[in-house]
């Protein structure tokens, strides 16, 4: 029975647009986007514990590729090109940092979005002479929602597949002890690179799919680093090394921050900060692991 639960859930979500208002659909798109982002982030960072702070570098690149190409190429081709560019970017970043200790990777990803933003801004101002582009695509909000939902399903499916195969085991070993991993025959750089590129490709695609919602795109809008930070805290809160953990963290946090940004914009960063600190101290392995621990304690107490 439990095996069919994800399929039933997917169908319910797929039917949701028929039951909600336009505003509700907008919220749904946002929530599913963050489910995709958090799950894709955890695909690499969840087990390896290499904290990537560059989600929006890929997400924004995806959106920007659509903005540049949407008038000249068919939509499907644009998506493929966006995915390829994201993969290539991840390959470059990974090749230069993943052979080194985790902290170099964190630092590099910390500034990557800002770097990409500056480079694109400079290019647009100096070479093309325009800053800001329009996306006029014949894609409805419902279509965007369904595409994003499909991407979320693919991401979670891919994660489940990886968890059950060699790559998943290799990533878990790397997260525990890289020296042991290497001495057990695991090629460190290649394994990390593979997972990072897969993760980044999905992040880029998510940006490309979401982009028509913006209509007007410029670097300062699409490379908003809050996206990166929200993604990290969502995955960590739910449990980044669990299959459903990131999704479980993404949905409530998306609505919580949506509420905060409308009603209490000034306290938004304070809440985000306290949440990070609370997760590290109280739920270091996420809510799912926390619940399991409580259950185990309750069982032992009852027996």
């Amino acid at each position: 029975m439990r095996r069919y639960l994800p399929i039933v859930g997917f169908l319910v979500f797929a039917a949701a647009p028929f039951a909600v208002s336009d505003y509700g659909l907008g919220l749904l798109i946002g929530a599913v986007t963050y489910v995709t982002l958090a799950s894709a982030w955890a695909l690499f960072s969840g087990h390896t514990r290499y904290i990537s702070l560059a989600t929006v570098a890929f997400y924004g690149t995806g959106a920007y590729v659509v903005a540049v190409l949407n008038e000249t190429l068919p939509y499907g081709l644009v998506l493929i090109i966006a995915a390829l560019i994201g993969a290539l970017m991840a390959l470059l970043v990974g090749l230069s940092t993943l052979r080194l200790a985790g902290v170099y990777f964190v630092i590099f990803t910390f500034g990557l979005a800002e770097l990409v933003r500056q480079l694109i801004t400079w290019y647009e101002v100096n070479v093309t002479g325009t800053l800001g582009r329009y996306i006029f695509l014949d894609v409805t909000a419902r279509e965007i929602y369904w595409q994003m939902l499909a991407l979320a399903a693919v991401t979670i499916g891919l994660t489940a597949f990886i968890h059950r195969h060699r790559l998943g085991l290799a990533l878990r070993v790397i997260g525990d002890d890289e020296v042991v991993a290497a001495h057990a025959g695991i090629p460190l750089a290649r394994t990390k690179l593979l997972a990072f590129v897969a993760s980044a490709t999905i992040l880029t695609l998510a940006g490309a799919i979401a982009s028509p919602r913006w209509v007007y795109v410029e670097p300062a809008i699409v490379f908003n680093s809050t996206v990166s930070f929200l993604t990290v805290i969502m995955a960590l809160l739910g449990g980044a090394n669990r299959l459903w953990g990131p999704a479980l963290g993404a949905v409530p946090l998306f609505f919580a921050f949506e509420y905060l940004s409308v009603n209490l914009p000034n306290t938004y960063p304070i809440v985000l900060g306290l949440l990070f600190i609370a997760v590290v101290f109280v739920l270091p392995d996420g809510v799912l692991a926390g619940i399991e621990k409580l259950r185990a304690r309750w069982k032992r107490g009852a027996a």
Partner: peptide
């Protein structure tokens, strides 16, 4: 001594068998 704390005993030992020659 270097063990992998988040894995089970069986998984700990399985690794070189999985990723070895």
């Amino acid at each position: 001594v270097r063990i992998l704390p988040s894995l089970t005993l069986s998984e700990n030992v399985m690794i070189p068998a999985v990723f070895g020659a």
